[in-house]
Design a protein around this nucleic acid. Structure first.
Length: 633
DNA sequence: TTAGGGTTAG
């Protein structure tokens, strides 16, 4: 490549700029060493070789020794920058130590890359040293250096120190504000981030799209929907430029908060839509109960990944469309996307709400064939699925064979026993759980209390409920109070059930009042039943059970005008008593039964058998409950 | 001859 010994300085520069490989640089270097005595040449070569791609970094570092000491900052700043941006940011700090060792001095341009590297690798010790050095040589007045110092502290987990540097800055621009806001967000100090954002607006610094992007994502994470409309107004009023990052953050926030029309407004503004943002839309629509809109976005997506398929599957599984969930799952498998444990968890819960034991068994076998037999998520879902499909033994089988169990596994199994009326087994399992030192959580207690309430063991139930706060430090939730109302209600201890409702720290919902109402109906407690029904109707004016109960109470008291009023109201609003459907799947065929239903082809045989069972029950001393018979009078 | 900031789905 180089033959003449008289290459000029400009020619060297020209050749260097054309060096494409490390080999070229080495050739040139050798030539310079042979022909050029001026020591500035090696510095020059060092500098240029530092400036380009990462292949030169090691070479540049080795060249550094040939630079006469003390080196000038302009010589190594470029290499510091490249090192700090490389995959090995720690090398920046090592190189900085070499510079100091060689007696080199830093200028304000040297600090930022070293501090950035210190931030990346959390080198708090070196970072603090640099802070001191910056103070000493007065470069700390430079806003760039100050921002980098601040960021270094924040990245090393010293958010208070970072804020101190921030507060001491005489002037702050939009980057300074953003850096502090971002660091607060990363530490989870969202309120501090919002406060700073407000302060920033007051100090007449105009937020740009990066700041807004962070604030929007902080809003999304905080779950504080109070900011959502304020942000929307701000964007409209200030005509903020929106790039893909900001739009993504906006769509995610509004979709997460269920404001789907606003989310869609931003989503349609995007020219390129990532998988993330589209999946956020699918998820948002499905959580808002708008399954068709979710499906529409889903169908329009050109590329789909596992997360996106899973979102659609769980959307159907959780909104009582289990058949569709399984169809989407089949489609996903046909497209060659392998399910993971989260996807399978959704499929299993779809089977649970389908209530079809046959399908459940198939999914169970599928999970085992595909290597998920040890998966906690899948096995926990299988326990719930079998419990809901009536397969208590199968649920127990899954539970016992699990190589590792967590609190969810135990709670699911306890709940499975309770659901099937096996209170003793539920309580025995709870005792075993304690023996094995697994800490129960609030869900565990729902299962346990449910078991007690159905077994009529009132005193034990009271003790367990008290132990939640006294022994386990778990604050009872609405569901736990509901179980207690149920417990007293079933045991015909209605005043105590009412006392539970009155002692609740939160407002009772329809389920709670409904539970008391049903207990009053069963035990013929008219006055309290009326009170409970009135509360139910306050919360849900069309509640069929409460309306029927009210009309029955009035009928019993021969208040026929009131009966007619309630009945007419129900007819006008088209409130029909919801009828419970029972379904059994047998040999691939589905059989449905309604109250008084004679559609089944073997209806006669079924009713004959029913008659037989009822007479046997009567012989055993069971008396039918006629409390609801008035319903159909 | 060079410097500081961002988002994201089950």
């Amino acid at each position: 490549m180089l033959t003449a010994s008289t290459v000029s300085s400009t020619a060297v520069q020209d050749l260097l700029s054309h060096c494409k490989t490390l080999g070229h640089i080495k050739q040139l270097h050798a030539h310079i060493l042979r022909t050029v005595s001026d020591h500035r040449r090696s510095s020059f070569l060092f500098n240029l070789s530092s400036s380009s791609s990462s292949i030169n970094i090691n070479y540049s570092l080795s060249l550094f020794s040939s630079i006469p000491s003390p080196p000038e900052p302009f010589l190594f700043n470029l290499l510091l920058r490249n090192l700090s941006r490389s995959d090995e940011p720690r090398a920046t700090i090592l190189f900085y130590q070499r510079i100091r060792h060689a007696g080199g001095r830093l200028d304000q341009f040297s600090f930022t890359p070293i501090l950035k590297a210190a931030a990346k690798v959390s080198a708090f010790f070196e970072g603090t040293e640099l802070h001191g050095l910056a103070l000493k040589i007065a470069t700390l007045s430079d806003p760039f250096v100050k921002t980098a110092v601040m960021d270094m502290y924040a990245c090393c987990g010293k958010i208070v120190e970072a804020r101190k540097v921030f507060d001491e800055m005489p002037q702050r621009d939009v980057v300074t504000w953003n850096t502090m806001i971002v660091r607060y967000c990363r530490c989870g100090f969202l309120e501090e981030a919002f406060e700073l954002f407000e302060e920033m607006k007051c100090s007449n610094v105009m937020p740009d799209e990066m700041i807004l992007c962070n604030i929007v994502s902080a809003c999304a994470r905080s779950g504080n929907t109070g900011y959502n409309s304020a942000i929307y107004e701000f964007l409209k009023e200030n005509d903020v430029r929106m790039d893909a990052h900001l739009l993504t953050a906006l769509v995610t926030m509004y979709a997460g908060a269920g404001c789907m029309d606003i989310a869609r407004e931003f989503y349609t503004k995007m020219s390129v839509r990532s998988l993330f943002v589209s999946t956020a839309m699918v998820s948002g629509f499905s959580k808002a109960g708008r399954l068709e809109d979710a499906r529409d976005i889903f169908d329009r997506m050109e590329k789909k990944d596992l997360v996106c398929w899973t979102t659609m599957i769980s959307a159907y599984a959780e909104s009582d469309h289990p058949e569709e969930a399984l169809r989407v799952f089949d489609e996903m498998c046909r497209y060659g996307t392998e399910p993971d444990e989260i996807a399978l968890g959704s499929v299993v819960s779809a089977c649970a709400s389908l209530g079809v034991l046959e399908k459940a068994t198939w999914v169970h076998e599928y999970t085992h064939r595909n290597g998920f037999e040890s998966s906690l998520t899948v096995n926990n879902a299988l326990i719930n699925m079998y419990a809901k499909c009536g397969g208590l033994d199968a649920a127990r089988g899954v539970f016992e064979e699990m190589p590792t169990k967590n609190v969810v596994s135990w709670s699911s199994m306890i709940n499975a026993f309770s659901m099937h009326g096996e209170a003793n087994d539920a309580l025995a399992l709870f005792a075993r759980m304690k023996q094995e030192h697994v800490e129960p959580n609030d869900v565990t207690f729902v299962g346990v209390l449910y078991g007690w309430s159905h077994s009529g063991l009132v005193e034990e139930g009271k003790k367990i409920f008290a132990s939640m706060t006294n022994e386990y430090n778990i604050t009872p939730k609405l569901e736990h109070y509901g179980c207690m109302v149920d417990l007293f209600g079933r045991a015909n201890r209605l005043p105590e059930a009412l006392a539970v409702i009155e002692s609740m720290p939160m407002a009772p919902n329809v389920v709670i009042w409904g539970s008391l109402m049903s207990a009053c109906r069963v035990h013929g407690e008219i006055e309290l039943g009326e009170l409970a029904a009135k509360h139910v109707l306050e919360l849900e004016p069309d509640h069929d059970g409460a309306l029927v109960l009210m009309s029955n109470i009035y009928a019993r008291e021969e208040r026929w005008d009131d009966v007619r009023k309630v009945r007419r109201g129900m007819e006008e609003k088209n409130v029909l008593k919801e009828k419970g459907v029972s379904r059994i799947d047998l040999n691939g065929e589905s059989h449905e039964f309604l109250i008084g239903d004679k559609r089944h082809k073997r209806s006669d045989e079924i009713y004959a058998k029913l008659k037989e069972v009822v007479s046997e029950l009567k012989l055993a001393g069971c008396v039918p409950d006629c409390g609801s018979v008035l319903v159909d009078v």
